[in-house]
Structures are given as structure tokens and as C-alpha cells.
Design a protein around this nucleic acid. Sequence first.
RNA 1: GCCCGGGUGGCGGAAUUGGUAGACGCGCCAGAUUUAGGAUCUGGUAUCCGUGAGGAUGUGGGGGUUCGAUUCCCCCCCCGGGCACCA
Length: 857
Amino acid sequence: MAEDEEIYDFSTIEKKWQEFWERENTFRAEDQSSKPKYYALDMFPYPSGAGLHIGHPEGYVASDILARYKKACGFNVLHPMGWDAFGLPAEQYAIKTGTHPSVTTQANVDNFRRQIKSIGFAIDWEREINTTDPGYYQWTQWIFLKLFQRGLAYVDEKPVWWCPNLRAVLANEEVVDGKSEVGNHPVERRNLRQVVLRITAYAEKLLAGLDDLDWPDSTKRQQKAWIGRSEGAEVHFEIEASGEKLTVYTTRPDTLFGVTYMVVAPEHPLLSQLVISEKKQEVDDYVLASAKKSDLDRTDLAKEKSGVFTGSYCINPVNGEKVPIWVADYVLISYGTGAIMAVPAHDERDHEFAENFGIEIRQVIAHPDEDKEKGTLPYSGPGVMVNSGKYNGLEANICKSKIIADLEANGVGKGAVNYKLRDWIFSRQRYWGEPIPLVWVSAENYQKAKVIDGSLKDLIPENAVTTVQNGQILYALPIPSSELPLKLPEVENYQPSGTGESPLATISEWLEVWFDLETGKALSQTEPKPNGENWVTASRETNTMPQWAGSCWYHLRYIDPKNSEHLVAKDKEAYWQGPDFYIGGAEHAVLHLLYARFWHRFLYDEGVLANPEPYKKLFHQGLILGEDGNKMSKSVGNVVNPDLVIDAYGADSLRLFEMFLGPLEAVKPWSEKGIEGVHRFLRKVNRECRRSNKHLNGEETNKETLKVLHETILKVTDAIEDLRFNVAISQMMILINHLQKVESYSIDTAKILLQLLAPFAPHLAEELWQSLGEKPSIVNQPWPKARIELLVAEEITIVFQVNGKLRGQGQFPKEIDKDTVISAAKADTKVQSFLEGKEIVKEIYVPGKLVNLAVKG
RNA sequence: GCCCGGGUGGCGGAAUUGGUAGACGCGCCAGAUUUAGGAUCUGGUAUCCGUGAGGAUGUGGGGGUUCGAUUCCCCCCCCGGGCACCA
């Protein structure tokens, strides 16, 4: 036997077929096709300097298997790849070395592309996108302009992390335990001017849209919790001294009679007028102290509740009682109205506070269990109302709506809905991000812009977006889409400006412009002012967009990546719609997936898109841990480099093993020995397919082989559909083990095995397919169909149980009747030994499976 | 604290409209082949008792439903994830 033929030379094979696919454009997705479409999408990577991590391919392989399988099933498949390439690391590297982030990014992208290509994915590389490409981010900016036009973007002072030592704004993830990640310096909260997107306007739609999505339940639940819808009422309490209204939000209007004090947040606008002069010093000290507290301190539940009485009272609208008003930092200014009515008997937090300060605790909901009534406060469950005037005796839950109606009738409140969701801080004080296409002008010029006919006029939102700078109110004007992309200027220094502004603020020739109120054209003020009265002075917005921006809509750009006229052409969008499958890490359960839904829904509402939801079916692959069971990390030294794995075992082995590790969604450790196992399997396939002396022409004749083969077709097909790739692989192993044992088998059998294997180990499958005399590419062959009728054996095994325990078994023809089987079971010598001296009380027969004799005595 | 997900051999994991627990792979043991190693092949491998045939136990722990439970119900323990004063 020619030993050489059996060698599995994966390096040569993989190179050969990767070149073939590229040359033949095997995986080009057709925009005009009569075939049904299938769009498999991976969360695109941030191309880091560290290169591809072993965790990246896990999801990519999964989507690739689906893509190749669907292609075999006759679909026109789109499986694209691109780069989420704006972001901090490239900028930090630039600060350190002076290398322009675009240079770093390009090098990283090249490396990522090389690595991803080496794994042999069925990717249409003609559709590659890059969020830092002006041809791409021009559309990111275009979407922003739409949001701005519709009043969904505004500017506000918002607290951010500020590091005085670094003189820089830090992102949440750059702050570890109240210190800067770089240099370990103390950080503080500081208010900075931010561009904010009004995602809260979409809270209801984002919540309702979840119902129709085929997403992991846990992810839907997380989004639901994040949006945090609650129903209740706003109630107005009249302030005794001034007659003004203090409005609170409550989900428990049924406990209004149990209110014994009120609390306003330290930042509440009415606080200063509530404080009586004797209390002023104490309250001022308290407000100052809580302002200094970090978020962490303020949300520490273990902390004792603190607060100060303001000296003022208000009137409970349901019973006219005088209620003291306190200030306490356990009430948040950012939720509801920033003020609460406190019901210590039925709210844990209020109860704790009331006990601290000796405030009355008045029960108004009876505990349903009479005996437990004492000592079980606070009680927040359902019950009958007590101490509540005319509502006494009513079921509290049912009474809520009645009370709300009464409040409304009396003009002292109304039903209200609240969300935990906050507006989205959309600006970063950074260089390496999409410039925000706005300029700032004076009030006078703004008024002019609103009346001048031109491309600008219609893009201006109904309500002006303003900011205060050096005591002057400035107005935001959009840079119209005709002037996009607004490119990042070159900068000499990537250091933050030191004032908390972006490095862009330091480039005055970019910052200060002549701006044409008619056309939206801008020209640096280093140039002479153009003629025409519509040219005014303006300064550019210096903030850039967050990394989320580019990833909010990239799934659309793959459909039409080179379109310079539109974000995506209507006909292409109509054909491709959106991804049929989207895979990525669960860490994006909320932010990316919520932001992307927001933008997509907005574009749908604007008539740009035909569908409201971007990702119909979503899946999260699980984490791959190091061999030691810990998270892979450089410092632990347990990182597996995919390049080295491919060198040693080949891309096919890597692909196969990532899928064989365990369930796709599970967290599972890597294993060097394990990859040897699947590599061995591929070698077996290679060897069997090259043993021509075992191959027979014509159809498979061995019944046993035929049965295993069709069982394998069935199981592999079902397993792929269910994303249970580990099961599919083990079934193929069963088949090859069988083929190895039989003397000979039909060459067709080998070919079918290769077709089943092709989505998992495409290079080897192509090579062997060709060596068996077929024409490439195997990906264009129709998927094999299982013949179910072959799976039913003529003889079936039926097991005998006594009291549910296995005691024997027998072979029967498949059309056997119950009585025959039961008598056979009773006649079995082993079964008999367990029946001896006992009485059979029940005989159970599960057709074709088992007999169970229940005995007594 | 609250809300999820999970706990099956030495290891990764199969098996659920309730019906032979441990497929497949790894590791390990024995054997074949080989000058040797590697590679490959064959057989074995949950635990305990037993020379053996065989028996008992066994899917985190306890209880329940059932002829029969990894699967359904109740309580508890452990691990992982998310949220965290949201009124």
C-alpha cells in the first residue's frame, strides 16, 4: 500500500483550497438571485494588536458551518466580515508612540484578516467593511444627523469620570475601584458637556419589540430589566409653606395612607426653598457630602441610610395630613421625579430609614396571614387595605387603579409610567472616533439659518440644541449630508487637551471655521472669509462618537457596502432584509444589542428601512477558558494562539475542535489533548477516503453501513439545525469508525460522509472530494437526504425490566404484539429469578422498547 | 439581597412528549504491529462487593409523584452569570 497517499498534509491542502475559493469567488453573495437568501452574521471584531484570540473563531466557525450548510441546501448565502476599528487602544498607543491610530489600525486589520482567512471561512471578502473608513462613517454621521433633525440628540452637562492627574476623561472600564486603570490615580465625577441621544423616547418600542425576537431568554430578560418599565402614579403633595407642589412617583398608590415622611434627592431643584433657615447649614453640609460620594459609595446597600430633615412639611392629598420632608441620598435625582413619598411599613428602604430616625411606621396593608401580622414589617406583598379611610377592606392590588382615578378626579395626581433606561451619552472626549457633524453658532446666526432657504434649513430640529460657553449661549447647527464625510483632521498630539475636551479642541485651524448658513459648507478661518452674507463664524463640535456608533448599523452596510449614494439601496435591503442568524458574546446582551435596535427602529420609523428589528435570531457562544479552567489572559499565561494551533494541527482541526469542545453556548476549557483527538478523526477520514481498495462502485449494499450512514445524515442535519455541532461531530466519528471496521463500502458512502463533513472541515472535504474523482467545489453539491425507511430495523431489541430494573432483553420482529413480548419476558430465566415467589401486579409494555413487570411481595 | 443558567465516570460531554444512564472524544490499562520510538489497530475502563457468574449502588443532597425519574414537583447546598437603594 502506498503509505504516502495516506499522509494528511493539512498545510498544503488548506493553502490550496483557500486559494481556490478566493480565485473562484466561491463565496460571493449574489445581490440578484432567485434563490432564497440566508444571511449569517458574526459580531465583528475590534482588531486589537494582540491578534486573534482563540475565542473569536468559536462564533465564526459556528456561523460558517451554518453558511456552508445553507449554501448546500440551496440558499444564496451572505457571510461577511468587517472591523469595528475605532476605539481606545489605538489612541492610547498613539499617545505613547505618536503613531497615527489609522496606521496601527491598518496593521491590526491586516493581521486579523490574515488570521481569519487562514481558518478558511466562507466569507464574501468583497463586502469587507471598516468603521474607520470615511466611506463608512459618513453614513454613521448621516444617521446621527437624522437623529439630530428629529430632536433625538441634545447637549447636556453630564457627570463623567475625570482624572486630575492624567487630565483626562476616562471611560467606565478605565476606572477600576475608584482609580484610573493607567497609573492608578484617583478619579472623580465631573460634569462635562455631552451630546446625548434620547433613547428613552424609544423605551416602549424597544420593550415591546422583544416579544417577537428569537433570542436567548436571558438576553431578553436583561434588556427588559435594563429598560425597567414600571407602572404607578405621580402624586402631587402641596408644600405647606409655599403652596407649591412636590410631585412624587410611586408604584404603590395603594399605600398613600401609610406615608409618614417625604424624601427629596440632594440634587432636587425644590430643595433650597424647602430648607428652613435653622436647617440650612446642616442640609448644605449633607448635600455637599453626598455630592462627593462616588456612585459606588452611594449605591452601597450595606451603608446605613442617612438624611436630614429640611424643616418643611407638605400635605398628603388623600387625608390632609402634615408630612415632614427630608433630604436623603437614597433617593436618586435621575429616576422618577427625584422625590418620593415614604411608606416605611411597606417598603424596605423607607423602613430602614424610619427606624434610624424614629419616624412613625404605619401599616396600611394587612398581612394575609393573621398570625404573622406582628413583626413582619416591612411587608410589600398583596393584602387588604387598613387604616385607609374609605378604601378599608378593599384588596390593595385592585384598589390601585381606583385610587389613581380618584387622584386624577381631584387634580392631585395621575397614572404614570417610568423607565430605568437613561438617555445615551453619545460623545467621547477622544480623537479616534467619528467626528460629530455639528457646528456651534451665535443665537443671531442660528435665527438666520432657520429662515434661509437651502440644504440646512430642514435639518434643524424643532427645539434648538444649545450650550453655554464663556457665558454665551451657542446654538448647534448640523453639517448637511452633502458635506459628509466630516473627516478626522490630522493632529500632532493625541494627548487630551487637559481641559476635559477632545484633542480636536486643540487644532484651532480645524475648530474655527467660516460656515455657510445656506449650504452648510465650512472653511477654516485660516482662509480668508468667502464673500456672501450667509458666511458666518462657527466652531466645530470637538467630541467624537463612541465605539457603539459604528456597530449600531454595520449589519446593513454588508448588504450594500460600496454604495456612496445611500446607506443601503432599497432593493438590496428588500432582498437581504437582515441577518437570519447573529452570533456573538453575551457581554453585549444589553448595550450593543440595545443601541443597535434603537438605531434600526429609528431608521425604520424614518422610512429608511423595511423592518423594525435588526436581529431576528440571536445566539451567544460560550467562553473558551484556558486549559487550567481559568479565563485566558496574558498575565496567567494560559492563552492559546490560533496561529500555533493551525501550524500544528491545521485549520480544519481547529474548526472541528472548537465545535467539539461542548455545547456552543457553554463555558468550556481548551484542551491540547482534545484537539489531537479530532485531528486523529480527520486523519482517519483522510485514510479511509484514500483506500481505494476498499471502495466499491455503485450503491451501498451493506445493510449495516447503509443504516449507520443514513442515521448519520439524519443526526448531522438535525444537529446543525439545532446548533448542536458537538453532537454532529460525534455522529460522524461513529460513521468513520464503522467504515474503518467493514471490509469495503461504496464510494458513494465516502462521498456522502465528505459532504456532511464539508461545513466543519471544508479544506479536507474539498481535497478528498476531488481525489474521489469529483469536481470542486463540494460546497455547491446539494445536501444529502436521509432515507428514514432504512433506519427501521427488521429486528428490534426489547428490554425486560422488573420493577423498573433491567433484567434481560430479547430480539423480536418489528411487528411483534404485546402478549408475545410479555410472555417472552416472563420466560426469560433471569427475569424469572426476580419473579420467584412474587406477585405480578402490573405489566407495562412500551411498544418496540420495553416490558416492565411490577411485582409485590 | 433579587433574577437567571448550571451541577452526570479520572476529564470534556451524550441521553428528556418520563422508558436500556454514561454515546463520542480525552486519559488510563492490556495486547498486536514495529529494531526502537512515533503512528496505527484490537479489547477493556462509573463505583462498591465477588475468583467468577453475578449482585448492589449510582446523574450535587433530601423528600415526593410514578410500574419506571438525569428528565416532573417541593426544600436545601454548591458553582457561574446578570442586576443592584429605580420608589
